[in-house]
Write a protein that binds this DNA or RNA. Structure first.
Length: 824
RNA sequence: GCCCCGGUAGCCCAACGGCAGAGGCAAUGUGCUCAAACCACAUCCAGUGUGGGUUCGAAUCCCACCCGGGGCACCA
């Protein structure tokens, strides 16, 4: 018996150079094979890899490596999302250019990925901060702009005072900056937007095609975020109080046009321009004062829902388009300027917010739907359910909400006073950032020609190389604005003096199309090669964290649809299937510096080896569940790998031994394991695959020690199956096993063993006999036993006879060959 | 408040509506050893959050509730 010992570090050193030589995972090497595109969300280069990366890569790699074993031609690329704030902040601190930090970290991470043995095709590596990449980010921006999907507007925007930049709506979480948790404030700025709202309905509709392959909760979150609501636009005429005698038509959005008879006042958003246009001269001062207060309040204050309602009377009246009734117009911050039309009709009886406002300011409440509950005028609880219409003209007596809504919309449309409509919660995507380390927006501002796109042949607009440290300090405008030699250019149209747009793009723009670039990462004439994309796209399996459920995934879906409309793609959804891995936590809490509960990945690998760490993370539980490092046992994983490895050393037959003569019981176990593993992997139930592999190792051990013995060909077959199963999770151990079994590298391309269906059939099965659902006897029967025979056998069984004790049999349910249930 | 996901041995987790236990951790014991570790073998441990319902039969399907996690929330 060999005295060899299992040394994880030695295996890593031994096999890495061999694999780099063989380069087994280069895509496009299997002519004629079906193509599969596996993608893991590319990392941001902050420091070295951590446990979270280790988990997602281990899970993702199972899928990619399984596909290789199954004979597919697999594209599994890697790159870096390498623009972004941390590099810029590090550069300020260290007085250097952000690229220094960025590219140093990328090298560190790349080295770690190689050691971690993820089956990436390294030849396709990309970095979003490379000019060769962001040139196309800029090009795409210009295409969007040509199509009217990128535009500039003045608007109150989310401002992070810490990072000194604006934020998209998606980057504000509970009134705080998603990145740094600073309290977000509002600023009125002129900024670039992508018109994602144009795609709201399609983003919603196309989710139907993802229903079976994306996690339900991600779809739910996106639906929630898009926030479709059906209702109506209703026009109100407002008599202006400027002495002109004129009127202004104001449109409101409502989901309950059927309650129009109950509208007793109107409210416009205090911070909308409309408020300033409508306000009566004598109320202007009050509005200004109120507005100043509103502006001071942060989103955090606004989010406190128990906050009393505030507002100011604008001193004008609106006319109810159905009844002609006059109603006062107020301004308040509970109406949002950027949702709907920024104005509402208030129906206090049937909307709690309106009711609170009415109570605060003594405005009338009129019930128009009797739901059988207490009248809101007395209870101060708005009723929103179905009921009988009252005080509602022609609607009176009707008791169907849907019909009521329908009839009022019909009426409004007939009168030219309104229309049925759909509104979305989704806002356009604010993409400008007042920071340095991002793709410059390729626009030149010329006093004569206005906004001029940088001509395509002048792309990329490259970031200057000579800014560092203090030059990059955030000052509320982009550091690029101060880079004189960079910002001042000749206008491409008239040749006169002009300035570059000094903002950079949100880094989510970079990551909204990187998966397309991978199919042809060195393409120089286009962002991607359309032919290559037809071969590889869309992504068959995307793996990554649920934290991108809205941001990255929604933006990428939007980009894909726009590029489809531009005729550049032939699919409308980028990610056919999505797997969200859970988090790795420790001791019940997320790992964090402040808690001091971080687990260092490098140290774990040094102690247990890459394979044991990967195995531990995969075996811990279902991929989408959070896993607690404190519950896990990398030592146990290592022990198992050693057991498996030892099998390979014990096999005493030669490669190619006549397996059909092998021990039938062990052969059945092997083939059953393989057959089951196929199903389990396809269902992403990787933890169970590991358990099945452990069982097979145990069975093989038993066969060697106390069964058919090490020379039986079935033992070799089992050990080889173990090596191939392990090649998905523990590549170093698997490769070493493969070599000890007398094969050439690499086991990663050994191919999935074909399962012999004959070996999946059991010789005998245990049938259980139940009486009233309780097990009373077990019978060994043939798998092909007939229902009648099984019933006879069951009734004849002495234990059953005893249990029946002469009771009258009412019914016998037979599920051959597994079960008989006797009802007495 | 609304919407998703989950609750099975001391712990992590399995179980096409059909024997509650596959696998692992921990614990205990036996063998190996001068001894310990390693290793091998064995043993121990829950009736599935609670209450109803459907069914011949429910961890699994349905309803209500409790607990935990996540998302959304002054969006008219």
């Amino acid at each position: 018996m060999s005295e060899a010992v299992y040394d994880a570090a030695a295996l890593q050193d031994k096999w890495r150079p061999v694999w780099e030589e063989i380069d087994p995972f280069r895509a496009g090497q299997r002519a004629g094979a079906e193509k599969r595109y596996a993608l893991t969300m590319f990392p941001y280069p902050s420091g070295d890899l951590h446990m979270g990366h280790a988990e997602v890569m281990a899970l993702h790699d199972i899928i990619a490596r399984y596909w290789w074993q199954r004979g597919y031609d697999v594209l599994n690329p890697i790159g870096w999302d390498s623009f972004g704030l941390p590099a810029e902040n590090a550069a300020i601190k260290r007085d250097e250019h952000p690229k220094v930090y960025t590219y140093a970290n990328i090298e560190t991470q790349a080295e770690s990925f190689r050691r971690y043995a993820v089956s990436f095709d390294w030849s396709r590596r990309l970095h979003t901060s490379d000019p060769e990449y962001y040139r196309w980010t800029q090009w795409l921006f210009l295409k969007f702009r040509e199509r009217g999907l990128a535009y500039r507007k003045n608007s109150p925007v989310n401002w992070c005072p810490h990072d000194q930049t604006v934020l998209a709506n998606e980057q504000v979480v509970g009134g705080l900056c998603e990145r740094c948790s600073a309290v977000v404030t509002k600023r009125e700025l002129n900024q670039w937007y992508f018109k994602v709202t144009d795609y709201a309905q399609r983003l919603l509709d196309d989710m139907d095609s993802l229903a079976d392959t994306w996690p339900e909760r991600v779809l739910a979150m996106q639906r929630n975020w898009i926030g479709r609501s059906e209702g109506a636009h209703v026009d109100f005429d407002i008599a202006l109080a400027d002495g002109s005698g004129g009127t202004e038509r104001v449109t409101v959005f409502t989901t309950r046009p059927d309650t129009l008879y109950g509208a007793t006042f109107m409210v416009v958003a205090a911070d909308a321009a409309l408020a300033g246009q409508l306000v009566a001269p004598e109320q202007r001062g009050a509005l200004e004062t109120y507005l100043a207060e509103v502006r001071k309040a942060s989103d955090i204050d606004r989010l406190a829902s128990d906050r009393p309602k505030s507002g100011v009377d604008l001193g004008v009246t609106a006319t109810n388009p159905l009844t002609g009734e006059q109603m006062p117009v107020w301004a308040s911050d509970y109406v949002l300027a950027d949702y709907g039309t920024g104005a509402i009709m208030a129906v206090p009886a049937h909307d709690q917010r309106d009711l609170d406002f009415a109570r605060e300011f003594g405005l009338p409440v009129r019930r128009v739907v009797d739901t059988g509950e207490e009248n809101p005028e007395q209870s101060w609880v708005a009723t929103t359910g179905n009921g009988v219409y009252v005080n509602s003209g022609a609607l009176d007596g009707l008791d169907d909400k849907a019909a009521g809504i329908h009839r009022i919309i019909e009426q409004l449309e007939a009168d030219g006073r309104g229309t049925g409509t759909v509104n979305f919660r989704l806002r356009d995507w604010l993409l400008s950032r007042q920071r340095f380390w991002g793709a410059p927006i390729p626009i030149i501002h010329c006093d004569t020609c206005g906004e001029v796109p940088v001509p395509e042949d002048q792309l990329p607009v490259v970031l200057p190389d000579d800014l560092r440290g203090a030059d990059l300090k955030p000052k509320g405008v982009s550091p690029l604005a101060a880079a004189e030699s960079w910002v001042n250019v000749d206008c491409p149209t008239c040749g006169g003096p002009a300035k570059r747009d000094s903002d950079t793009m949100d880094t989510f723009v970079d990551s909204s199309w990187y998966y397309l670039r991978y199919v042809s990462p060195h393409e120089e004439g286009a962002p991607f090669d359309a032919e290559a994309l037809r071969e590889w796209g869309p992504i068959d399996q995307y793996v990554g964290g649920v934290e991108h459920a809205i941001l990255h995934l929604l933006y990428s879906r939007f980009f894909t649809k726009v590029l489809y409309d531009l005729g550049m793609l032939d699919f409308t959804e980028p990610f056919t299937a999505l797997l969200n891995q859970g988090q790795v936590i420790n001791g019940g809490k997320a790992m964090s510096k402040s808690l001091g509960n971080g687990v260092n990945l490098g140290e774990m690998i040094d102690e247990f080896g890459v394979d044991a760490v990967r195995l531990t993370l995969v075996f811990a539980g279902p991929p989408e569940d959070d896993i607690d490092w404190a519950d896990l046992s990398p030592g146990g994983s290592l022990k198992f790998l050693q057991r498996a490895w030892r099998l390979a050393g014990d096999v005493a037959s030669e490669p190619g031994a006549a397996v059909q003569d092998g021990d039938p019981a062990l052969r059945k176990a092997t083939h059953k394991t393989l057959a089951e593993a196929e199903q389990l992997i396809e269902g992403h139930r990787f933890n169970v695959v590991v358990a099945r592999t452990m069982e097979l190792v145990n069975a093989t051990r038993k066969a060697i020690d106390s069964g058919c013995g090490p020379a039986d060909p079935a033992v070799r077959e089992a050990a080889e199956a173990v090596a191939i199963l392990l090649s998905l999770v523990a590549p170093y151990t698997a490769e070493e096993m493969w070599e000890r079994l007398g094969h050439q590298p690499t086991v990663a391309r050994a191919g999935w063993p074909s399962v012999d269906p004959a070996l999946l059939v059991e010789d005998a099965v245990t049938a259980v006999v139940q009486i009233k659902g309780k097990v009373k006897a077990r019978l060994e029967v043939s798998p092909s036993v007939s229902a009648a025979d099984l019933e006879q056998l069951a009734l004849a069984d002495p234990a059953v006879q005893r249990a029946l004790d002469g009771a009258q049999i009412r019914k016998v349910i037979v599920r051959e060959p597994k079960l008989v249930n006797i009802v007495v």
